[in-house]
Design a protein around this nucleic acid. Structure first.
Lengths: 227, 227
DNA sequence: GCAAATTAATGATTTATTCAAG
DNA sequence: CTTGAATAAATCATTAATTTGC
């Protein structure tokens, strides 16, 4: 019962086609006037109101982005897993690796994928965790602009770039070498439903209960807690 | 001297493309981990460091916003002109129009051919203009869900839908009939530097110092102040 | 074939975040 | 630092696809 007692709008194929065309032509967030114009034009092909047009663009845009993000996330995660695998093997094989770590179980990614549950649904929550380690490494401007340290100075430390061109180009799986042990992602940004896709995939890496870092003056103290 | 003695990063086209795709997919302020991932991925296509990625997103976001603001400004002015034109025609055709106005020239409508001038590639545009009058017109749920009025109840009123399918389709420049006088976009925020662009354009219109609307219960009071 | 049951899409609402003006 | 405006994200809810058992 599309037309009569229906509680929600049911776009006709022609309406859908036109909306889609408008979207593809670049329209994303039409203003009130545009909505009215679109509405009156589409009303030729069936019952429609302005709010339908508004919601359609909202939803379409959101779901479009969602799809793109999923794609990107999968890509990044894949790369990351490969990298971690690579890194861990390297670490365990290394003669300098502490024996204390050798017994650590590989974590089952189904249970510990989300290391920091408080860094939740919105990736903006990850802002607290944000720290651009290379900010300690930026040439002149950092020292001048002390404001940059204000926000991030006492925050989590995750990794430090080794620097510009000295990084050799690893094939695919690679990323630039790090000065310190690179930890895996602390934030679960953008990975809510996306994570569920991959809960069956196995991943060999170490699970930490917490990672903290405090920077005072020039000294940095890093704490790793192992459950 | 792009690679060697260059002091600043020179993104390759492929790097730019990928950055752009990530931006379009919603990434705005990547965290350290993301930056590292992105950096290592992009390093496949040329020299790059984390700070380049960071700065790129910072700058791209800022400049995107700036562009949007400019576009919005232009659109606001355009709409105002359209409105004034429309209003003026209506006024001049009306038998009650003061003869004092009849000599005013119509403005050249060739400039208003593009229905959706702001609908560009990145058109999160027209944020300030958004006001969906149909929110006052939603059937049952509004009355039940008084929460919807909470947010918008005392807001500016610009126009009111005549309703769904009853709106005839005007050719091109048209818009659906209005129950009340349609006002043009009221807010001029975000228009600091952008406003200076067009101070030379002439416009024959009446200027209002303020337009306010207060809705209490079912009564609406509209105030127009003329300086 | 064909409905009841189940799942996937998508329209409509609500909530959280961002941005910037005061 | 607070707050208003405006999304964008998350969520709810209904419709359409589809699967399934007969």
């Amino acid at each position: 019962m599309s037309p009569a007692g229906s509680t929600r709008w049911c776009p006709t194929p022609q309406q859908l086609m036109m909306l889609d065309e408008m979207y593809r032509s670049g329209i994303r967030t039409p203003n009130a006037t545009q909505i009215q114009q679109i509405t009156s034009q589409l009303s030729l092909y069936g019952k429609i109101e302005g709010k339908n047009v508004f919601y359609w663009f909202q939803n379409h845009k959101a779901r479009d982005r969602q799809k793109l993000r999923k794609k990107l996330t999968r890509q990044l995660q894949h790369q990351q897993q490969l990298y971690h695998h690579h890194q861990l093997l390297h670490y365990l094989d290394s003669p300098t690796a502490s024996p204390a770590f050798r017994h650590l179980p590989y974590y089952n990614s189904t249970s510990s994928l989300n290391l920091f549950p408080q860094a939740g649904i919105h990736d903006e929550a990850a802002k607290q965790v944000m720290n651009y380690a290379w900010k300690f490494d930026i040439p002149e401007r950092v020292d001048k602009n002390t404001g940059m340290m204000r926000t991030y100075g006492c925050d989590w430390l995750m990794m430090v770039d080794v620097g510009p061109s000295s990084s050799p180009c690893y094939p695919m799986i690679s990323r630039p070498p790090l000065k310190t042990l690179e930890l895996f992602p602390l934030t679960a940004s953008n990975l809510k439903e996306e994570c569920n896709d991959n809960i069956n995939s196995t991943d060999s890496s170490v699970s930490l209960s917490s990672v903290s870092c405090n920077i005072t003056g020039t000294a940095a103290k890093i704490t790793l807690s192992i459950p």
